[in-house]
Design a protein around this nucleic acid. Sequence first.
DNA 1: GCCGTTTTCGGCCCGACTGTTTTCAGTCG
Length: 583
Amino acid sequence: MKNAEIAAAMDELADLYELDGAVIYRVVAYREAAIAIRNSPVSVAQLALEDRATEIRNVGKTLQEKIRALVETGDIPAAQKLRAKFPGELVRFTQLPGLGAKTARKIYDELGISTLAELKEAAENERLRQISGLGPKAEQNIVKALAKQVEEGPAQRILLSAVLAIGDKLVTHLRDHPTAERVEIAGSARRMTDTCKDLDIIATAHDPAALTKAFTEMELLSEVSGGREAGARGVTHNGLQIDFRVVEPDQFGNVLQHLTGSKQHNMELREYAVRRGMHVSEYGIEEDATGETHRCGTEERVYEVLGLPYIEPELREGRGELQAAIAGELPQLVTEADLKGDLHAHTTLSDGRSSLADMARAAQKRGYKYLAVTDHSASHGFGNDVQADELLRQVERVRALNEELDRFKVLAGTEVNINLDGSLDYADDVLEELDWVVASVHTSFRMGEENMTKRMMAAMDHPLVDVIGHPTGRKILQRDPYAVNVEQLVAHAAETGTFLEINANPDRRDLNDVHARLAAEAGVPIVINSDAHSRRTLSVIRYGVATARRAWLTKEHVANTRTWPQLDKLRKRRAKAATSRRR
DNA sequence: GCCGTTTTCGGCCCGACTGTTTTCAGTCG
């Protein structure tokens, strides 16, 4: 059973307990456990079977037993009991904005309403106002919310790259304004999450009204509301909501910290502060002992007042960063500047848009020392496959190009397809001519988990496969990962000395942050690759670096922070040779 | 129901907003 399924069961129990009127802390405990379970890189089902689920934060003895029952029998007795007590659609009432468990329960108890259809009818016929606490406005809101739900479905999330394309433009424009002092992106975009719901921008200015006006007049906004002294809200032409706020300079750090979140991180931070006699809010940090409120101009100062080292935004997800900060064990996160090369890129030989020479020069211009050119293999099948003889001619061209280049090395490589049985798409004697081999799955995504895992593990067994490309095949907001057991892949990568890729394409970011952390902890070298299909898209590497940072990776975890000779020695083909020479 | 650099029991983040109220509960982020 997958972590996501277990987490969903915990969320369902939280909803049911809340309807049942349980103390809110118990309900919250289930919700927090659900988050931790969803974030767990290891199989929680497995842990529960071994009576070890309590190793997960926010999972205690009670939940360990409930999860175990769920895994062993497919359900939890407490959930069955509560489902019998409350009709199915009652939980869906609480998913309407403004309507919570307390209100849902009252509607059910006092009017016997248990379906969304009945709820709509009662709201339209003004029967809900019989209940104390509900009035005409509540009825209107319910009718509106139900209509909106039918119309729009669940809230849309937007890919980070689309959000930052707008956010970077906005920030640059606002920083150029004469009255602006500081302008920063906050919220989930600053934490570099895969997707965002909206975009938060905060600023300081010596004329806040003038800066707000500059914001509201930007062409990329299609609508603007609440344009006043200290900020406004806008919506872009492609539907991204932007919250812009101008704040006092001496509170900028407090607000930036507050709005960057995550919610989970802030809750943990505040609980920690309370234990130390302090209260954190977006306005400052109040000390119980002195009654003094510390207003902080920078985020560094916020963490300093709390007695903590600075915690990077990408770590603020409530995944143990606070405990690490307290223990002085925060990782020194890898940066884009640490990368010495890119080991997965395409040219016009397969489906890229830039030539071999253009790609090499663009990579060198970025400050890299090497670039692996890895076009698709023979059976790629989008009409841009590379037959073996053609690949060998490309190797010649690469060698010739290297003669011309100064202090830069192009590596002749391939992104070779992993066949259904785990064999590779080129013969070994062809692969032997190459400097670098990425192996990826591009066909039969719908294979069962066991077969897919075997298929990829077989590819790792090949001595010439350096790295597995985009190991789960997910496309964010578009396509689920293929069914593959990532824990087994990681263990096998460690065993065989195969690297795993963080593919930086903003649609992929694959491995994801949770899995990359698991792999790094298992000692698997990670390679951050752009998978660029043109010289311009080499820059998507920032999303791969962001994923690596969200996975707590340091420079040491990432193989391509090394020079090519250093990296070369790390590979299984060399490491094995070294071992046998020692013998 | 979970958790511990004051605690294994007694706490458990903070503020804004809304709609319904005669001073606040419920909901949200």
